[in-house]
């Protein structure tokens, strides 16, 4: 065991993993986090706390993780390179480990142009792959990127994200391979709507033997409306939503129910894709639906370990 996190144990046991996302509030109020933690407890193996996603200022991911840990659930903190140089990244990794946070997802980070502090100066000392490499060296060798020896290095389970739907498509598996080489233990994909394209991606992942080296969590987003489908199709760069899905949401009598049904079908399908070791549910601003989806997808109860 690298970190001994619950998520790592689920993967190591060979069980199909479930993670879900919790967006921290845009305020200093911990209550929404506590509320979501209580509501989702038991429905996933670990919960992702986003790190100022889309560059919108939110309660910090490390603080959010500590808040949800009080409710007895395991966090995966996201840590982006947008707002931290190598001094802050390594320092925050120490801090997170010292607070008992065992899973860290390494991300380059959304550009500040998408957020609510557009005139900000960004950092990008590293990108996500360099971040992984540096964190992996820290945990394996107890040595900082600058060479300093660390007496008590962090024991962290390292994650990454990959988007099979960004261009150039033919390079995406190579990029995943770089993340594996840099030390990633698990990978969360961008939300999958185009199953054909995802299966093609997974074929190449398997042909390169990457599924044996990294645990892939297939990303899903339950949608509430046809508007959400259209928005993701047209406005989110690097997301592919086939027309059939937009039409299905548009023609649904009860779009919310249709969204849930669709998400469950997607999970059922993803369970059958070789090399997929779990799902990551991103119910953006719809966290309360997660327990229902997990239950209806036949993924309960979640495994427990001594």
């Amino acid at each position: 065991m690298k970190a001994g996190s619950n998520l790592e144990k689920v993967f190591e046991s060979g069980k199909f993993a479930v993670t879900a996302e919790i967006g921290p509030p845009q305020s200093a109020n911990p209550e929404p986090l506590t509320h979501h933690a209580k509501m989702m407890k038991g429905s996933a193996d670990a919960f992702n706390l986003t790190d100022n996603q889309t560059a919108v200022v939110r309660l910090s991911s490390i603080a959010s993780a500590v808040i949800i840990m009080r409710e007895g659930i395991e966090p995966v903190i996201q840590m982006t390179c947008r707002d931290r140089n190598r001094i802050a990244l390594q320092s925050d990794l120490f801090g997170a480990a010292a607070l008992g946070i065992k899973n860290v997802l390494c991300l380059t980070g959304d550009h500040q142009i998408f957020g609510n502090e557009k005139p900000a100066k960004n950092v990008f000392d590293f990108d996500s792959i360099v971040e992984l490499q540096v964190f992996d060296q820290l945990r394996r060798e107890g040595r900082q990127v600058g060479g300093e020896v660390v007496k008590d290095p962090p024991r962290t389970y390292l994650g990454c994200a990959e988007n099979p739907f960004a261009t150039p498509y033919e390079y995406r598996v190579s990029r995943l391979a770089k993340k594996v080489a840099a030390g990633a233990d698990f990978c969360q994909t961008q939300a999958i709507f185009d199953m054909v394209m995802f299966e093609k991606f997974m074929d190449e992942v398997r042909s390169r033997g990457l599924d044996k080296k990294i645990h892939i969590l297939a990303g899903v987003i339950p949608m509430k409306s046809a508007g959400a489908a259209r928005y993701m199709k047209n406005k989110v760069p690097g997301m592919i939503v086939p027309n059939e899905i937009v039409d299905r949401m548009k023609n649904a009598k009860d779009p919310k129910e249709e969204g849930i049904k669709l998400c469950i079908e997607q999970i059922e399908h993803l369970k059958t894709v070789k090399g997929v070791h779990g799902v990551h549910i991103m119910a953006v601003a719809w966290e309360e639906i997660v327990p229902k989806i997990v239950e209806m997808a036949g993924l309960l109860p979640r495994p427990t370990f001594q």
């Binding site: 792959i129 960004a166 261009t167 150039p168």
Partner: peptide, 18 residues
């Protein structure tokens, strides 16, 4: 835009910058 050393990021669509 992110001065990446190991790009492209996940926001590259149609070979354009997000």
């Amino acid at each position: 835009a992110k001065s990446m050393l190991n790009g492209p990021c996940g926001g590259s669509a149609n070979r354009k910058c997000e």
